[in-house]
């Protein structure tokens, strides 16, 4: 007789998969939190908070190493197949993307520290609206990506991938604003470059979050939505 429980015949394997899932969720929450704090430090020009974020980078790195160790152990011991193989591969890559998001958050904090090191802040007094808006979208997309991983929701994951386009638009928008501002005003070039880099960091965060959502789709459906650019031609028409 065959019964079809969702559990593995070797129950310990279920426990190991569950454990790595929660480990990644924990890392995801930490990274989202770090990103929120980073944006807070940008908005409030909070040097102390920025230094706290920089210091907490080690924790995320340690979590990445710990998760990778578990992934290695599962691959060696269980030789996973099918959905299990996809789960382990996706988990490993998601961990990597989360660590990168953590790095970008630290990068934001580093820019805050650099710009406000002398206590005077941004000499350009450039309005932070665009960066904050971009930050808000980035936080939203990372939160959604972690959420779809938590619930393993393929449909929502596809929406997150689509939503990433909004972030790209915000990035372009912010960049144009900054360029207009630089042309019109007397500016401190180094601070302006820092702001561009901050926007770029937020855009990269969106890319990593998009990748996490794609990996959830791969984990659930075995399909790689990566590098699908169906609307490319529409966005950049060759002819009028």
């Amino acid at each position: 007789m065959t019964n079809t429980f969702d559990r593995h015949t070797i129950h310990r394997f279920d426990e190991e998969l569950q454990a790595i899932h929660f480990q990644v969720l924990e890392m995801g929450e930490l990274v989202v939190n770090q990103l929120c704090l980073a944006m807070e430090s940008v908005k409030n020009k909070d040097l102390t908070l920025a230094h706290r974020i920089i210091d907490s980078e080690r924790t995320v790195n340690e979590m990445e190493v710990a998760a990778d160790t578990v992934v290695c152990a599962i691959l060696a011991k269980r030789c996973p197949k099918g959905r299990d193989l996809r789960t382990v591969l996706a988990t490993s890559k998601i961990v990597n993307n989360l660590e990168r998001i953590g790095d970008e958050a630290v990068k934001l904090a580093n820019f805050v520290a650099y710009m406000h090191l002398d206590g005077h802040g941004d000499a350009n007094n450039f309005p932070l609206d665009d960066i904050c808006r971009l930050g808000g979208v980035s936080i939203g997309i990372v939160r959604s990506a972690v959420g779809v991983f938590e619930r393993l929701d393929g449909e929502q994951a596809r929406r997150v991938v689509e939503f990433h386009r909004t972030l790209d638009q915000q990035f372009q928008h912010g960049l144009h604003h900054l360029m207009d501002f630089l042309q019109a005003e007397k500016t401190n070039v180094s601070n302006a470059v820092s702001q561009v880099m901050m926007m770029k960091a937020l855009e990269r965060i969106g890319d990593h979050a998009q990748r996490i959502a794609e990996l959830v789709v791969f984990q659930l459906e075995g399909e790689e939505p990566r590098h699908h650019t169906p609307n490319m031609a529409q966005d950049f028409p060759l002819e009028e």
Binding site: T2, N3, T4, F5, D6, R7, T9, I10, P80, G82
Partner: peptide
């Protein structure tokens, strides 16, 4: 059924 066999979730 193949998925369940190769992942060891039936027996």
């Amino acid at each position: 059924l193949t998925e369940r066999y190769i992942t060891g979730t039936f027996g």
